[in-house]
């Protein structure tokens, strides 16, 4: 039973206020959003920060709903929210096919190379010129997350035993 205590300790150490692991659907997205909203409401979080956190959470969760299916036997992903004195951290992890890593990395590096105006221009460029994909995405999720966060998107790709990659993404939002 020690893993229960270990998990509990890890959550406390990392200041995690919410961890969800499992299947991701629109219904689960709504539930996770509602829980996080209640948490922020009850702690009296400022509405501007609450909106930014909500915004980043939606894009992060819907990214997983729309794209994590890419890999077989993997409806399983992880989503976490951490809350520290000076920032919120929104973290996700999901398996993707290894041959998708390069293009995803390129996209994230491009976003991270841009400043505020650069991101605005990229957003406008994509919204004007892109059709909604068959997965229902507009290709704007990461750009929007970077804009709302105002910081670089941190990411990593870890090799999995079955040959897939585990895509980790971290987005932070300042509380001050």
């Amino acid at each position: 039973m020690k893993y229960i205590f270990d998990l509990h300790q890890t959550m406390l150490e990392q200041n995690l206020i919410l961890v969800y692991e499992g299947e991701f659907t629109q219904e689960i997205t709504k539930s996770v959003l509602a829980m996080a909203e209640r948490n922020m409401d009850s702690s009296g979080e400022e509405s501007t920060i609450k909106r930014k956190v909500f915004n980043v959470m939606v894009e992060c969760l819907q990214n997983i709903v729309k794209h994590a299916d890419d890999v077989e036997h993997n409806h399983s992903a992880i989503f976490m929210i951490g809350k520290q004195d000076n920032e919120y951290i929104i973290v996700s992890g999901n398996p993707i096919r290894r041959n998708h890593v390069a293009s995803l990395k390129e996209k994230l590096d491009q976003i991270n190379s841009l400043d505020k105006d650069g991101l605005k221009n990229l957003y406008k460029d994509i919204i004007k010129n892109t059709e909604i994909s068959d997965k229902g995405g507009a290709g704007l999720g990461f750009v929007d997350m970077a804009r709302k966060s105002g910081r670089k998107l941190e990411y990593d790709f870890l090799d999995m035993e079955n040959g897939d990659s585990f895509f980790c993404l971290k987005c932070s939002i300042a509380r001050v």
């Binding site: 909106r51 909500f54 915004n55 939606v58 894009e59 819907q62 919204i127 004007k128 892109t130 909604i132 229902g136 995405g137 507009a138 704007l140 999720g141 750009v143 929007d144």
Partner: peptide, 12 residues
């Protein structure tokens, strides 16, 4: 009050 990026494309 809020819209996601997929909605923003449709709003356009």
């Amino acid at each position: 009050e809020y819209f996601n990026t997929a909605s923003s494309k449709l709003i356009l």
